[in-house]
Write a protein that binds this DNA or RNA. Sequence first.
DNA 1: ATTTAACCTGAAGTCAGGTACAGGTTAAAA
DNA 2: TTTTAACCTGTACCTGACTTCAGGTTAAAT
Lengths: 145, 145
Amino acid sequence: MYTIGQISSMFHIPVSTLRYYDKEGLFPDMQRRSGIRAFSEKEVDALHMIECLKKTGMEIRDIKEFMHWCQQGPATYEKRRDMLLQQKEAVEAEIRRMNQVLDMVTYKCWYYEQAIADGNEERLKSMTPDKMPEKIRQAYENGHK
Amino acid sequence: MYTIGQISSMFHIPVSTLRYYDKEGLFPDMQRRSGIRAFSEKEVDALHMIECLKKTGMEIRDIKEFMHWCQQGPATYEKRRDMLLQQKEAVEAEIRRMNQVLDMVTYKCWYYEQAIADGNEERLKSMTPDKMPEKIRQAYENGHK
DNA sequence: ATTTAACCTGAAGTCAGGTACAGGTTAAAA
DNA sequence: TTTTAACCTGTACCTGACTTCAGGTTAAAT
């Protein structure tokens, strides 16, 4: 059993945030000892899962739903897997989006390197993709589709 | 020259958001015709850049700084390039982070597939990485480092 | 000429995910 | 035993990026 302060230093999460998570229902049925929260291994596991789900960009209210399913045992395995599969797709989509954004800024960086070399943007403004270096053209086209 | 309503439908951005951007200084020295905003090609270009920078996760106040540099001509090319290079690094870091998150949820998805097949988590709870399938082990190890 | 649509401003409201504060209780250390 | 550190609650506040609203002006259409 751990106090909220111990959990705070274990996870590097402010005490206020742990209390906020609790208030939001992320630790269903956590025990208390004369009013004081008692974090067990169950809550430690929960917190690892919460951190994982947060990193995927999941909202607190959905994490709450997931944690409540965890309380209900094997009957909710499918629900939990489905939610994770959905998050996995969301993460994959986000990675695709970010790669496109990366191409966009790669092009913009090249653009400014050229502008610095030229001293102005005249040549660049009238440049068509086929006049760009291969790599930049690819970035430009992927970034602008 | 375009009205705010025309720009709104061209970019699929609410009129209120365009006014908010203007208030935040994202269109330095935009013209007015008897109090009414007149968006020129310059503001259209600016808005394309704003959309790009927003996608990289840049904050409004930093976008404002960038747009003000754009007003100042060739003297600020280096500053603009440096800011873009910095955003590029930020995007690359974010992609690396998301790939790690992806490995984490890939493992969790596999975990629940196993739990569904087993009907419980007993076998899984005591499983060491060397007993996992190769791909899952890699995801597990990458996701947990 | 009048109506109506699109524009304007400033201020307030919204939402997520916390963080800070005031005032009070519990429990470990001196 | 007393002090002090760590805990508790409820409420208020914060940030970022908008959105909404009330009340007023401009300009296009009838």
